[in-house]
Simulated assay, not measured.
Amino acid sequence: MGGEVRQLLEQIHRFSRRCLFRVLSMGPLPTHLAFIMDGNRRYAKKRGLEDGSGHKAGFSTLMSMLQYCYELGIKYVTIYAFSIDNFRRKPEEVQSLMDLMLEKIKSLLDKESIVHEYGIRVYFIGNLGLLNDQVRAAAEEVMKATAKNSRVVLLVCVAYNSTDEIVQAVKRSCVDKADRDTERIQLVDIEENMQMSVAPEPDILIRSSGETRLSNFLLWQTGNSQLFSLDALWPEIGLRHLVWAILNFQRSHSYLEKRKKQL
């Protein structure tokens, strides 16, 4: 009986979401959402959980967000999973995060995973050479396995910060120009060599835990993005937070579009 009740409740929730999303779809929807997933460790400490539990809860939140974005028809989702600066943490903490990352990356290859269910293509963006061999190999395997998917694009920024991305793009632009025997580097050259060039600029950048800093994330790409700060810690983020962010985006959409045309 308990299982039947849970199944009924889930059907009611799905129907309610469909109705809600249909109403939201009457207005403009973002094409690209970016998330700074802040507060996993504070969530674990707040609840007296063991180390790593906050990040596991955060992964569940990410899966829910991907499901909602798929149902809404949002094409691109970018997450800030691990900054280059995070390597400065205690070695045992970094190793624990790498082990968890390896576990979660491998889970994306499961036939029952949300990646295969929703046809998600996965990119790992960042200096992957900084990752250990196992994590890097798993990331490359996921990118290869999902290369033909096209419904949703998930960009995972790992071993990433924006200044490093810009520096690497400039370096690649210099190499390209040297190969063509020309010296002048233009803006379009750098943009084409940015790792994030596989996706349009984010419409909304959402950061959890009440922080209002960009933390060296997508500095190049968010000049016209709407910034949305949530007081809730990342594992506490739910559907209502996403809906509120989209409603705010719709309210200011016409102004943002005018600004883009002026630039």
Rank of each mutant, 00 (worst) to 15 (best):
D110I: 05
E112T: 14
I114M: 06
H116N: 15
Y118T: 01
Y118V: 03
G119C: 13
G119S: 09
F124D: 00
G126R: 09
G126M: 12
G129N: 15
G129W: 10
G129Q: 14
G129H: 14
L131Y: 08
N132M: 03
N132F: 02
D133S: 14
Q134A: 11
V135Y: 03
R136Y: 11
R136K: 15
A138G: 06
A138H: 07
A139Q: 01
A139E: 03
E140T: 03
E141T: 11
E141C: 10
M143K: 02
K144Y: 13
K144T: 12
A145M: 10
A145E: 15
T146Y: 04
T146P: 06
K148Y: 08
N149M: 06
N149L: 06
R151A: 08
V152Q: 08
V153T: 15
V153W: 01
V156Q: 01
C157V: 00
V158A: 06
V158E: 02
A159R: 01
Y160M: 05
Y160P: 02
N161R: 03
N161A: 05
N161H: 08
T163F: 07
D164V: 11
D164A: 15
E165M: 09
E165F: 09
E165I: 05
E165G: 10
V167I: 14
Q168A: 11
A169T: 12
V170T: 14
K171A: 12
K171M: 11
R172F: 05
S173P: 03
C174N: 02
D176V: 11
D176A: 15
A178Y: 03
A178T: 05
D179P: 02
D179E: 15
T182Q: 13
R184L: 14
Q186I: 10
Q186N: 09
L187K: 10
L187G: 09
I190Q: 06
I190V: 15
N193K: 08
N193D: 09
N193Y: 08
M194R: 07
M194H: 05
Q195S: 11
Q195T: 08
Q195E: 12
S197D: 05
S197P: 01
V198P: 00
V198N: 00
A199W: 04
A199Y: 03
